[in-house]
Amino acid sequence: MSEFLTALGDYAFLQTALLAGLLASVGCGVIGTFVVVKRIAFMAGGIAHSVLGGMGAALYFGLDPFAGALVAAILSALLIGAVRLAWKTQEDTMIGALWAIGMAIGVLFIAKTPGYASDLMSFLFGNILLVPTRELWLMAGLDLVLILTVALFYRQFLAVTFDEEFARLRGVPVTFFYLLLLCLVAVTVVLLIQVVGLILVIALLTLPAAIAGHYVRSLGVMMLVATLLGGLFTSLGLALSFGPDLPAGPTMILLAGGVYLASALLSHRLARHRALRRVTAA
């Protein structure tokens, strides 16, 4: 750890990586909370894996893969949302098909891109150490969009997340806000791909919020706690991976996964203890 702190003051790329992790944690906490509470992790996974098609196409045509990822993520979110609304009985199959098609398109584009496809592993598993400084501004801008949108439509998102039928009866345009929520998930996926890659993105999107959900019931507080946990996992994972020269993304996920398992066991024990106390008191 001391080696990392010393290097952090000397190397700009480490400072950029640390900032990228913290910026990604904002979307991870805010939107990950909705993903966990509404139980749409599989849909978020479909969006994440479809993104490779956009990244591969952008790389093939000489464009910014980050921009290609953003466009592909939003299009995938709208398509997956439409599938869920129109074909509920075949939802899982259709999302799985889109998931596979997006991955296949991306691999084909990357394979046909002239030169060595060195970026493929970075796309799949992330490489936070290679995030360019200019993309920090784009990440900060996307975070601002997420925060402002959620703040502006918080009550509507709350209603759609917990009870769509009740929201519809109250006159909330459920379809619009549902698709808007999926688009915010898409933006968050693009943020997190910079840090852990599209294979591991769902873990970082859901684990901090799931841990927070063990101990808090307020959606706003859950977002705050999940954001702080996301920042802790990305920062500490980066520090732990530096000395042994390990991949930073998988290290972050292992750290988050270990804390989640420990938290799940602890919350289960606490729940049993409370239940026993109620029985004893009665």
Rank of each mutant, 00 (worst) to 15 (best):
Phe4Pro: 10
Leu5Met: 14
Thr6Cys: 00
Asp10Thr: 07
Leu14Trp: 03
Ala20Gln: 03
Leu22Ala: 15
Leu22Tyr: 01
Leu23Ala: 13
Val30Ala: 11
Gly32Asp: 09
Val35Pro: 12
Val36Thr: 14
Phe42His: 13
Gly46Cys: 02
Gly46Thr: 01
Ile47Tyr: 01
Leu52Phe: 14
Ala67Arg: 13
Gly68Lys: 13
Ala86Thr: 15
Trp87Asp: 02
Trp87Met: 15
Gln90Lys: 15
Ile105Tyr: 04
Ala111Leu: 09
Lys112Gly: 02
Thr113Met: 10
Pro114Asp: 10
Gly115His: 08
Asp119Gly: 12
Asp119Ala: 13
Phe123Trp: 08
Asn127Trp: 02
Leu129Thr: 04
Leu129Val: 04
Val131Gln: 02
Val131Ile: 03
Arg134Gln: 14
Ala140Trp: 08
Leu146Trp: 04
Thr149Lys: 03
Val160Cys: 12
Phe162Tyr: 15
Arg168Val: 00
Thr175Tyr: 01
Thr175Met: 00
Phe177Thr: 14
Leu179His: 15
Leu184Ile: 12
Val187Pro: 02
Val195Leu: 06
Val196Glu: 11
Gly197Glu: 10
Leu198Thr: 11
Val201Arg: 01
Val201Leu: 13
Ala203Ser: 11
Pro208His: 02
Ala210Lys: 02
Ile211Ser: 06
Leu219Asn: 08
Met222Asp: 00
Met223Asp: 07
Thr234Asp: 05
Ser235Met: 04
Leu246Met: 12
Gly249Ala: 12
Tyr260Gln: 09
Tyr260Ala: 13
Ser263Pro: 02
Leu270Gly: 00
His273Gln: 15
Arg274Trp: 15
Arg277Asp: 09
